[in-house]
């Protein structure tokens, strides 16, 4: 699989370059943390979708003990692997986390926005 960066075919109408996760602006980052810290949704994301093993999450447990946001630490770790915001968006879609997807909708290409509308908000987690 040759991966020449994240350049998908660009048409002029697609203003948004696929941003790296470490470039996420703080308002969106904070919104994600608020949503995914709830009910440890971040742990489901980390283990079942990002492929982390339990023992990889040591630094996140330390962050929790220090009162920091586990999601913030998780995003930093995964971002350090040079993942993009669109990759995160797709994982959130697989988890039906439409609220989190909505929080970063402006950071992904318009063509992905219908994924948010494709299901009702996930009320079961409230």
């Amino acid at each position: 699989m040759s991966s020449a960066g994240n350049s998908t075919t660009r048409t002029s109408s697609e203003p948004i370059k696929d941003m790296y996760l470490y470039e996420i602006p703080s308002p969106e980052r904070h919104a994600l943390c608020t949503i995914l810290d709830e009910m440890d949704v971040w742990a489901d994301l980390a283990v079942n979708h990002m492929g982390y093993r339990k023992e990889d999450l040591q630094s996140i447990r330390r962050a929790i003990q220090l009162g920091a946001s586990p999601t913030d630490e998780l995003l930093a770790m995964w971002g350090n692997l040079n993942h993009t915001i669109t990759e995160l968006f797709i994982l959130l879609y697989r988890m039906q986390q439409y609220g989190a997807m909505d929080a970063i909708r402006n950071l992904v290409d318009k063509k992905y926005h219908r994924l948010i509308m494709s299901g009702q908000p996930d009320l079961s987690k409230l």
Binding site: G5, Y52, L81, N82, E87, F89
Partner: peptide, 30 residues
Amino acid sequence: LRAADYVAMNFLNEPPPERPANGPAAKIDI
């Protein structure tokens, strides 16, 4: 991999290194 991509693309003008098939570094199909 953020550092590896930086070296490959900025120092050597090569595409980013291959990602493993699974695990946290695996590329998510977008």
